[in-house]
Amino acid sequence: MTDDGVPGPDRIDLLRSAWERERPDLDVSPQGVVTRLHRVANHLTDRLVEVYRRHGLGEGDFDVLATLRRGGEPFERSAGDLAEHTLVTTGGMTKRIDRLERAGLVERRRDAHDGRGRVVALTARGREVIDAAYTEHIANEHRLVAMIGEERAGQLEEILRVWLAALEEPPAHD
């Protein structure tokens, strides 16, 4: 570790060196960013999923419950709306909703505004579970971000914001 808190050479440096040796005709410098980001994302996902599991949830389950909860009262959305907000196919969403319904965390019911439509709503138990899971999730995220320090976290957030804007469509508002 250097004086400024930057670790020395890592596995990615070794990987790049090997490629530079084997393919000197290619500029493999992007691997320093992309491969590290990919590895960090995998580690973060593992640590996030640990929290969800403690609450009996998978990553997709957490996503559905969190989407319902952050929408506010009456904590319900159509299945299509949930699929759109969680970037899952409607078929995949149906499986998630079925699983959450069997667990007593959501229920399907008629839409109060459109008697022909159906909505997925949090149950009281579902709200308890997502509130507890989300509280632990945020504490976990604080621990993970603290690993790089507040200043670096702010810099990284801005860099990622720019990168995501270049890769994604602007978001629909929740």
Rank of each mutant, 00 (worst) to 15 (best):
T90W: 11
L156E: 00
T90A: 14
P171A: 06
L87H: 15
V88D: 08
A66M: 14
E20G: 09
P9H: 09
R70H: 11
R143H: 10
L48T: 10
D61H: 09
Q31M: 13
N42T: 10
D10K: 08
I130Q: 03
V119R: 00
G8S: 11
I148K: 01
D81Q: 12
N140T: 15
W19Y: 11
A124M: 08
R161W: 04
R116K: 11
E20A: 13
L167I: 09
L87M: 14
L44P: 02
E136Y: 00
G32S: 07
P9T: 10
G71Y: 00
A133Y: 01
L14Y: 09
V129W: 00
D63I: 06
A133S: 03
E73K: 10
R96F: 05
D111P: 04
L167W: 05
G72A: 01
T86M: 02
A139Q: 14
P7G: 07
G58K: 05
A83K: 02
V34S: 06
H137D: 08
T123L: 00
H43Y: 11
V106A: 03
R116D: 15
A133R: 02
E84Q: 15
G115F: 08
E107W: 03
R21C: 12
G154E: 05
D3F: 12
E150Q: 08
Q155A: 09
D61I: 04
A79D: 11
G104Y: 06
A41Y: 12
W19N: 09
Q155F: 00
D131H: 06
V129K: 00
A83P: 06
V120K: 01
M1G: 15
G149P: 06
A79V: 13
D131E: 15
V64E: 02
A133P: 06
A165Q: 03
A124E: 15
E73N: 11
P30C: 01
V51Q: 04
G91F: 07
A66K: 15
R96E: 02
R54C: 09
E107G: 03
E136L: 06
T90F: 09
D174I: 10
I159L: 01
R143G: 08
R109W: 02
I97N: 04
G104W: 04
R69K: 07
I97H: 08
P7S: 12
L105A: 03
R96H: 08
K95E: 13
K95Q: 12
T135G: 14
H173W: 14
E101Q: 14
L15A: 07
A83M: 03
A165R: 06
L48N: 11
I138P: 10
L15C: 08
F62Y: 05
E20V: 12
E157L: 12
E76P: 07
T45K: 09
Y134G: 05
D46H: 13
R161Y: 05
R77H: 13
V120W: 03
R77I: 05
E151Y: 03
A79Q: 14
Q155L: 08
